[in-house]
């Protein structure tokens, strides 16, 4: 079972004018086919299950191991200090109740620059606690200087992130 070499047949040369008419028929018969366009903002096509884009972070399970920072091929992830428990209005739910995240002693969390992220999904794969994960959400256009998402913003929904 190996590949065989085959000389291709060159088709007959078309007759002038007749050939053009045939081409016109071949092109023109698509006139009555249904268009394939998706009218984007109104109708959103079904998104495949494995499609990934916007990165989220669940601060309660991040242990600050910096693995995601090391694996990111574009160095889009930087670790940033975030004193969760000192922030007002944002309570971290852990198994032991609303309190400081004991696992993350250094209080460092990833901060993602979407301007350079290539959505390679490596950070999601390597994270030992599934704290960082990618979702189907993809409508997050930003202006030039506001691609960087701090850990606080990564934990929120897109609409709550004020840029």
């Amino acid at each position: 079972m190996v590949a065989t070499i085959k000389e291709i047949k060159i088709p007959k040369k078309p007759i002038p004018i007749i050939g053009s008419l045939e081409t016109m028929y071949n092109v023109g018969r698509f006139m009555f086919k249904k268009p394939i366009t998706t009218q984007y903002p109104e109708e959103k096509g079904e998104i495949p299950e494995r499609f990934r884009f916007r990165i989220f972070l669940s601060p309660e399970s991040c242990i600050g191991c910096t693995l995601c920072e090391q694996i990111c091929p574009n160095h889009s992830i930087k670790m940033e200090v975030w004193e969760v428990e000192k922030e007002q209005g944002l309570v971290v739910e852990t198994k032991r109740g609303a309190r400081e995240n004991l696992q993350n002693k250094r209080h460092i969390y990833p901060d993602v620059n979407f301007g350079t992220c290539t959505v390679c999904r490596n950070c999601e794969e390597i994270c030992p606690t599934n704290a960082i994960y990618l979702t189907h959400q993809f409508e997050d256009a930003r202006t030039r200087n506001s691609f960087t998402y701090s850990p606080q913003e990564l934990a929120r929904q897109e609409d709550d992130v004020i840029k």
Binding site: V27, F30, M31, F32, K33, K34, P35, I36, T37, Q39
Partner: peptide, 10 residues
Amino acid sequence: KYMARIQLRI
């Protein structure tokens, strides 16, 4: 419109 329909667009 005609061009679009032949090219399967709207």
